[in-house]
Nucleic acid binder design. Structure first.
Lengths: 350, 350
DNA sequence: TTGAAAGCGCTACCAA
DNA sequence: TTGGTAGCGCTTTCAA
């Protein structure tokens, strides 16, 4: 039997558990048990359950997650920290992250720090204030232990207990260099990534190793750095690649191929070579890394080493959810790159 | 005088207001008043305030926002709904949104629906469950009134009381067409945007108006549609532009210029023209809309009509924050585009 | 098979 | 100048 008439006649703006209970002539406790399907719910009579669910639908009742949190301490939310959400690298990763989170009914906050020290220092705390249950750091520094699980992609954290998702840089670089070598290239220029980017050091070490392994010399005068990553938002990777390539040319273009740091810098470099009257790949072959969407549409189409960004994002999310659920997860997951041959490389001219 | 010794010796894992109060020998009420700097706080003695703040720092106390919400009903969070966070259009907008939100100490949830009907239907509710104080809809449908303020960019909502941020499509198209006309182009091809994209109809209407205004014929056989936007994630705008351009050529290339729907489709089209042996801009001039980063790095550099995406994102955030604060805000904000002449257009050959 | 009571961590109101 | 009390909306024993 429905409870006091006023309850029926005047559903409050926000329907609460208490209101439902009053309406049904039950106690809040009973209703709660049924709604959360707690173990205890098996002891509730089926007709009662049905009445409760009917009322839920009738009044479009939605539990207040904030009130619920106070008891359960669960928020089903995580945070993703990135330098800038506007760059394709981050955006593709987040896209992958999101697909897995959605399956688990988690939501996520995004926070871009643009390498502002204050932001980097404070973001983790303000996000903890929001009771996120875990965090994913993309190209973002972290110097202290967090009270929740942390996963890093393009890792530059210095904190303990961070699980990493990394591309196999050795493999990636080897793929690119071997291809160039097969085409007869010997004098190869290199782009070193920006400081404070999580792949820069590992990838550069890979270049050095692969170079000596293949008998290809890595000459300092044929090497250009992408500068600092601090000003990520202000100067695009394409612009950096453009400038670096110009510099290399002005030093006397003593090379027939370039292994860029990523696709962005490769695209900038190609534009610079073309502006200086060199043909790509006729005069200079160029290899990128990442395989961003655009790589297949520029002229010439970019030969590149694909880094499966959405997959990596998805792995990061899965890993984080696993750790939140208490699973023991290994330190590091290594992802394999894939070589994509298109039009920006050609045999060296005799 | 500090309170009972055990309080000092055993700070709990999570420091609470109650603990602080006990430690200080004050009541939770007093501490709360000081921390929130409520009007009432002026009646608290300065030394007491100092003691409180000292304790806050000593124990690294951070108020629990969820508990606080229960009283204040404020969360300082909003939601951003997009088709896919991975595309540059959405990513740039979000970047602008975020910059303003950060100033106001708001955080945001992102939700990509990829045009899955269930997602579109349910996302607003699950986000309301998280008590967001407002929502920004980017290229995302909405058919019912939300209980919080809503701002739309590239609007396809059908709900009442939505504030829109829109580009002046008439101006944008006029800018592009007049430029082509000045270069002597008469037979101009057009890309119509994908169905269910918020700019498609307005921009197409603008094409029709500008065409008749300038005495330029819009011929159906020189018009290609970008198809449906449903499969946004699967087929990139570049790919759509590529295919549409190929189709136009196969119908007999009776045009000397193309006004694309946006930069992505323009870039795809350029690649298609080049693949078919046409020079851009020698044989065909191409104009884009948006001015995405990469527009300046492809060959030829893209002439385009700049849509200030980060600015529009920032305006959306400012508008939403204003409405959350209770300001009366006009229905629509119109943003002015800017013409950027680069290399993809040239005078028509005689 | 259900309900009463307590409490999560905080703020708000009014009294002292 | 400060504190007591109540309550936000929910879950969770434990008792009935």
């Amino acid at each position: 039997m429905p409870g006091r008439p006023h309850a029926v006649d005047n559903p409050p703006q926000r329907v609460t558990l208490k209101f439902l209970a009053e309406y049904l002539g039950l106690s809040p406790a009973t209703v709660s048990v049924v709604l959360t399907n707690s173990p205890h719910a098996s002891t509730i009579a089926q007709p009662t359950k049905d009445r409760i669910w009917d009322a839920v639908h009738k009044f479009h009742y939605r539990p207040n997650l904030f009130a619920r949190y106070l008891q359960t301490k669960r928020t089903y939310s995580i945070a993703v920290l990135v330098p800038d959400i506007g760059d394709e690298f981050s955006a593709m990763l987040i896209s992958g992250i999101e697909s897995k989170l959605a399956e688990a009914k988690f939501n996520y906050f995004v926070e871009s720090h643009r390498f502002a020290p204050a932001q980097i220092e404070n973001s983790p705390d303000t996000l903890m204030d929001r009771q996120v249950e875990g965090m994913i750091f993309i190209n973002t520094p972290l110097s202290r232990r967090m009270p929740v699980p942390v996963v890093a992609i393009s890792d530059i954290t210095q904190a303990p207990d961070v699980t990493r998702i990394v591309i196999d840089n050795d493999k990636a670089v080897l793929l690119g260099l071997r291809h160039l070598k097969d085409f007869g290239h010997q004098r190869i220029a290199f782009f070193k990534g920006p400081e404070r980017n999580g792949d820069t050091e590992a990838r550069w070490a890979a270049v050095l190793r692969a170079g000596s392994q293949l008998g290809l010399e890595v000459r300092p005068e044929l090497t250009a750095s992408m500068g600092s990553y601090f000003s990520a938002g202000e100067v695009s990777m394409m612009q950096r690649g453009y400038e670096a390539a110009m510099m290399l040319i002005e030093k006397g273009r003593d090379f027939t191929a370039l292994l860029a740091f990523n696709d962005g810098s490769a695209i900038g470099a190609i534009r610079a070579f073309q502006d200086r009257g060199f043909m790509v790949p006729g005069d200079i072959s160029v290899v990128g890394i990442d395989d961003i969407q655009l790589a297949a549409f520029i002229a010439p189409r970019l030969t590149t080493i694909r880094q499966p960004l959405t997959v990596m994002g998805a792995m990061a999310a899965t890993t984080l959810l696993g750790r939140i659920a208490g699973e023991q997860i290994s330190e590091e997951t290594i992802v394999q790159p894939e070589f994509v041959i298109r039009e920006s490389t050609a045999p060296v001219k005799c």
